[in-house]
Amino acid sequence: GATAVSEWTERKTADGKTYYYNNRTLESTWEKPQELK
């Protein structure tokens, strides 16, 4: 079946920190989402 992984995108802030952005829920998080573990 379909997985939720594609909803999350790994992004970088202007100062180079990595965060994760969810295209479906429009939420962002510093922690790696469960779906990516």
Rank of each mutant, 00 (worst) to 15 (best):
E35K: 05
D15A: 08
P33K: 02
W30A: 05
Q34I: 13
V5E: 13
T3D: 12
R24M: 09
G1V: 13
R11M: 15
L26I: 02
G16M: 03
E7G: 08
D15Q: 08
E31N: 09
G1R: 08
Y21G: 01
T29I: 08
D15V: 03
R24H: 08
N22H: 03
E27G: 03
A14I: 11
W30N: 06
V5G: 12
E27F: 04
L26P: 00
K32R: 12
T18G: 02
E31W: 07
Y19D: 01
T25V: 01
N22G: 00
R11G: 05
V5P: 12
Y21C: 05
R11I: 11
G1I: 14
Q34T: 12
E35V: 08
S28K: 11
N23Y: 11
T29V: 14
T3M: 12
E10T: 06
Y20P: 00
K12A: 06
E31D: 11
Y20M: 01
G16A: 03
K37P: 10
S6F: 09
Y19F: 10
R24L: 11
L36P: 05
Y19Q: 03
Y20D: 00
A2D: 13
R24T: 08
Y19W: 06
K12T: 12
K12N: 05
A14M: 09
T3R: 07
A14V: 10
A2T: 13
R11K: 13
K32N: 05
Y20R: 00
R11P: 00
W8M: 01
K37G: 15
T29S: 11
T29A: 08
D15G: 08
P33Q: 02
K32Q: 09
K12Y: 11
K32H: 04
W30M: 07
E31L: 10
Q34Y: 10
T9A: 08
T3Y: 06
T29K: 08
T18K: 06
L26D: 10
S28Y: 14
V5L: 13
E35A: 10
K12P: 02
E10G: 01
S6M: 11
L36M: 10
E35H: 07
W30I: 05
W8E: 00
D15H: 05
T13Y: 04
G16H: 03
D15W: 07
E7W: 06
S6E: 11
T3W: 09
T18Y: 05
T13V: 02
A4K: 08
T29H: 05
D15P: 01
S28I: 15
K17N: 06
A14Y: 08
K37S: 13
V5M: 14
T29F: 06
T18H: 04
N23G: 07
E7D: 15
L26E: 12
Y21H: 06
A14P: 14
E31V: 12
K32I: 11
Y20Q: 01
E27A: 06
W8F: 02
E10P: 06
E10Y: 04
A2R: 07
A4Y: 06
W30S: 06
S28W: 15
E27I: 08
K17P: 01
T18S: 07
K37T: 14
